[in-house]
Design a protein around this nucleic acid. Sequence first.
DNA 1: CCAGGTGTACTACTATACTAATACAGTGAT
DNA 2: ATCACTGTATTAGTATAGTAGTACACCTGG
Lengths: 136, 136
Amino acid sequence: MFGLRFFVDPRSALPIYQQLVNQIKAAAAGGLYPPGQQLPSVRELAGQLAINPNTVAKAFRILEEQGVIERRRGLGTFIAQKPAVAKDLTSLRIKLQELLVEAYHLGVGPQELRQMFETALNNWNKGKEEQRGKGN
Amino acid sequence: MFGLRFFVDPRSALPIYQQLVNQIKAAAAGGLYPPGQQLPSVRELAGQLAINPNTVAKAFRILEEQGVIERRRGLGTFIAQKPAVAKDLTSLRIKLQELLVEAYHLGVGPQELRQMFETALNNWNKGKEEQRGKGN
DNA sequence: CCAGGTGTACTACTATACTAATACAGTGAT
DNA sequence: ATCACTGTATTAGTATAGTAGTACACCTGG
């Protein structure tokens, strides 16, 4: 049903499983994979990407720990129903802080950064709406 | 002149040199180290942190590549004069994108995220002003 | 010139992260 | 019951990232 959604660079500095984690999280957040949607099996994905099933399984395990997906033995893995309502936003605050530091050293001021932020938000919403449209 | 500004956890998942890079970048962005300010020598820092001078040197090398500091043989290392005016903001855009994805999976909506963003910006400015005040 | 400070280059050890091979275990259709 | 599909556990090989030891090169003040 789905074509080759994911790709992987074995020579990247980022480990393969991490690349998968990132891509799947992004796909889910972008609405490409709605809640409840079944993902390809570990073997299928591994086959497409020419990697070991265990590597895919590792990515899935991490994603489950983060509440992004649910794994069911014998059935498959699925996008979690609800983006967990977070109690602990520490990690997010840290990432935000890191973003500000990075911006500073790139010479990007508060005003310009704010604009980039809004642009990113808009693009994200736009993407989700397009995805919704495909279902009609 | 400066007390123990930096600390390091050898058992952290992040390598020591990376911890140093992060802390020094944050310190520079926060105004703790104004442009031109000399940093502790590799041996001094290594001594304080009970690590190998080469590890500090590695952090310094990375920071120089990023334009944060300048190293001068026989003299020392110093905070770069100007936060380089960035031509390539790709890395920043990627980090921003990752932030949105992260926020989504934590159940943080656009509105709430925007608020966190503004808060972080304010805190950052506040911090810099306090730092400026210490010089008077 | 020399001494004592700076950063730097080279080499090598070692822990472990990453991946893979293989076998195990749950589910559902036939 | 069996089969064909799911995910899971265990083990092990291997590349390499991280760190450290040691020696080198540069600068400045005496």
